[in-house]
Structures are given as C-alpha cells and as structure tokens.
Design a binder for these strands. Structure first.
Lengths: 222, 222
DNA sequence: TTATCCCTTGTGGTTTTCCACGAGGGATTC
DNA sequence: GAATCCCTCGTGGAAAACCACAAGGGATAA
C-alpha cells in the first residue's frame, strides 16, 4: 500500500474527515495542505529530500483567503504537480459532478481516479486508493454514470467566448465589435447571430435566456 | 459542558470530521445520524429513556437515497425536533450562506447558533458550542456578515415566477398568457415587460440574458 | 376632500433580434 | 475542372423586446 500521501482540501471539517479515513485505511503517512500553493511546495520539498509523495488526493475548488495565491484551483494544482513530479498518482475528490470537467481531467492531466463527495464518498475513496495502488484507474459510481453519458454537448473556445460576452450583457452588435477589435473571427454581426442560433438549436432552447440558463446549469460556462 | 450531542450530516467525510472535532472539544457522548428521520428517531428515543440530547448540530441539505424519507431537509428536521423536545439547543452547520434562510431559522425556529462550513468552520463550530452552552446565541463571521447585509436583493414569489418562465423559454407575450390563465396578477403584456425591466435595473443588468445569469449565479432561482 | 404616490395597463415608435434567401470563398471529391 | 459541401456574411423584412408618455385606479396622508 501507499506509504506517503498528501491531501489538498481547504474546508477544515472535510479535511479532518478525509485525513482520518485515509490514514485508517492505508496506515500511511498522511500529510495535508489547506491551499494549492502549500500543496505544491510540500510536494516539491519531499521530492528534493528524496522522500516523494506517492499519491495526491485533491479537491477541485478552493476558497481563497486574504493571502496571495498563485495557484487557485485543483485543476491548476494538478497541472503544476504533474510538471514537477510526473509519476505521482492523483485522485480527485470533489463535489463536482460535471462530465466535461471530469473528462478533461482524465484526458489532459492523466489523473488516476475520480471520486464524488457524497453519502458514501469515503468508502469510494478507499476503493479508489486501492485501485490506483494496483495501477488501475478508478471512477466512483456517480462519476462513472456522468462520464458515460452520451451526447454530452461540448463547447469550443469560440462558443464559450460568445456565451461569456452574452452573459456580460453584450448585444449582438457589440459582440461583433468586440470580436473585430480582438481579431477573433468570424466576427460579422451576421455570423455572431448565426452561431448563437446554432447553439439554441443544439440545446433545444427557444430563447437566448433559456440557452444561457441551460449551459450555466450544465456548468459549461463559468 | 454538554455531555450528550447528536449530529445530523449525510456526507460521510464531513460527518467524520465534525464528530471527531466535536468529541475532541467537548468530550461528550457524540452520536450521529445520516438522515433526518433517523435523527428524529434517536432524539425521541433518548427522550423516552430520560437521557435526552442537549444539543443538535444539523446540516440543512440532505441527499436522499433510495429509502422513503418523511423529513427531507434540515429545516423540517428542526421543526419536528422542536415539537418533541422544545428545550434542545440547536446549532446549524451548513454551507448555506443566504441571509434569508439564516434569518428565517433564527426567527421561526429559534435556533441557537449558525455556522457556515468553510475554511475554519470547525473552530467556529467549537466557539458556537461554547457560546450556546453559556446560553448565548452564536453566528460565525461569515453568517454574521450575511445577516447584517443591507439591501439584500430579495425576490418575491411573483418575480421568481417571472424568471422561471423566462428560463423556460417563454416570450413576454406567452408569460402574459400564462399568468392570465393561472389567474396571477399583474398579467398584462405591458406589466410583465415592466417587471422584468425593474429586475434588470435592480440587478444592474443590461440584458435579460445577463439578468438570468446573475440571479442564477446568486442562487435566487433554482 | 384633495393631493400625492405607486402600480397597472395601453399606445406608438425605436431598437434589437430573428429568420429566409442568396452570394462568395475555401476545402474536398470525383 | 466541376460538383458539392460548409462556413461566412450581406440584405431586407418580420417578430420580439425596449422605452417614453400617459391614463386610470387604489392606497395613503394632510
């Protein structure tokens, strides 16, 4: 079993629960950090001292306090950690259940497991630790069902840009202006209109308002 | 200090964290229940056996599993518990930070403390336990600032109805029709338009799209 | 009562969005 | 090269939303 594990979780009562559970299950040295920067630092130090962590269990969203934070999200943290220690195993333990986010974590950052916090999150986490130790990847039932959804509508950068401008109160004409100024194409008034219409069709939305509500609920724009 | 405490929290890792922290702080008998029905039952039994709980620490939102649940939320639980044991002390420990919900809990159910889960939620919870034991009410800094917010934008039932119809893709004319059919007033096309405009002004939104995005982000419509 | 205020509703005109048609241009295929 | 497809983009007209002005009505207070 793993002998040295680090946990990144900011909320103190969750942190406490995870640490005790993981420690009880693995009997490993379980360290913890409340913020991303600190996590990265600890991993870096352990590596320098030649006693590296074997497993990182990380949350995705972190509340930022008054301090300066260079890394502000679990996603960034994972990216940074992979740079300094590519062979570390990573399990994400998060309340987040959006398929797109999970997929991107597996595809872009090669995480080894994903467990959704929930009624029985801790026992799923234990299963994940065991599986990852056995060189397998693991997804808990909740995230598995999310991942296996077909027809997950994905938005490309351009579409997200459009929707983002929309929710900022831009009119179609203003969006067109903005795109022209920022050298993004297509950018004609007419094309903007067309793209938004296509999005409405894709999501089966009758109005832009409904469209925005839907993509927002699905977490496709942040 | 309290000697018998019960904790209602469904998420297992949070539950574990709270229980260990509370036990360490109070050295009391700390029982726990994952669902509301079970919590009520335990409190009832303890009362019958003449060893009642002195303090209930409860979450507000509960994930329901496959079983039948008669009580489904922390608010309901508190209401029921107050009926069977009016003198029990209650501290709400929740992620919920909406002022309206907090206020109604203090006013309608006379809870003794409110602590928001967060970076240092557990230490605030300990302070709350001490304060409540000393017959004081307690609000953590986060909830205190939420409670003291002025100009909290509140939506009444009518406005929520309007916004709900909007996100369902209704046009203004259709909203008017719907309101007339359901005997809700005001319901003229013109008034609908006006109310939506007022909402835009209140939220400082340039378009309906931005308005919907904002109220959605604020959790004012579900 | 009168005056005032606020909300509802109507009217009409402007702005914005929506949509159908079609022209041009790039990529692919035969 | 010709045919085809898809995306961009312009035009013009219809639909929807926006907005200013004002009439009526209910509540309140002097």
């Amino acid at each position: 079993m793993f002998t040295k594990i680090i946990i990144a979780e900011d909320i103190d009562n969750e942190n406490l629960g995870i640490v005790s559970s993981v420690h009880a299950f693995t009997n490993a040295q379980v360290d913890t950090a409340q913020f991303c920067d600190k996590t990265r630092l600890k991993i870096e130090r352990a590596l320098q001292e030649d006693v590296p962590y074997q497993l990182l269990i990380s949350d995705l969203s972190f509340t930022l306090d008054y301090k300066e934070h260079t890394i502000t999200s679990g996603k960034q943290l994972i990216e940074e950690v992979k740079k300094i220690q590519p062979d570390i195993k990573i399990i994400v333990f998060s309340g987040e259940d959006k398929p797109t986010i999970m997929k991107s974590l597996f595809e872009n950052y090669k995480i080894n497991g994903y467990v959704c916090k929930g009624l029985y999150g801790l026992s799923e986490l234990n299963k994940a630790i065991q599986a990852v130790y056995d060189h397998k990847t693991f997804t808990c039932p909740v995230s598995k069902s999310a991942l296996h959804q077909k027809n997950v509508l994905q938005l490309d950068a351009y579409e997200i840009q459009l929707l983002t401008l929309l929710v900022q109160g831009y009119k179609q004409e203003e969006i067109s202006q903005y795109l022209i100024q920022n050298n993004i194409s297509p950018n004609s008034r007419r094309s903007v209109e067309d793209r938004i219409r296509k999005l409405r069709e894709d999501f089966n939305a009758k109005t832009n308002v409904q469209l925005i509500y839907m993509v927002n609920q699905l977490g496709l724009i942040s």
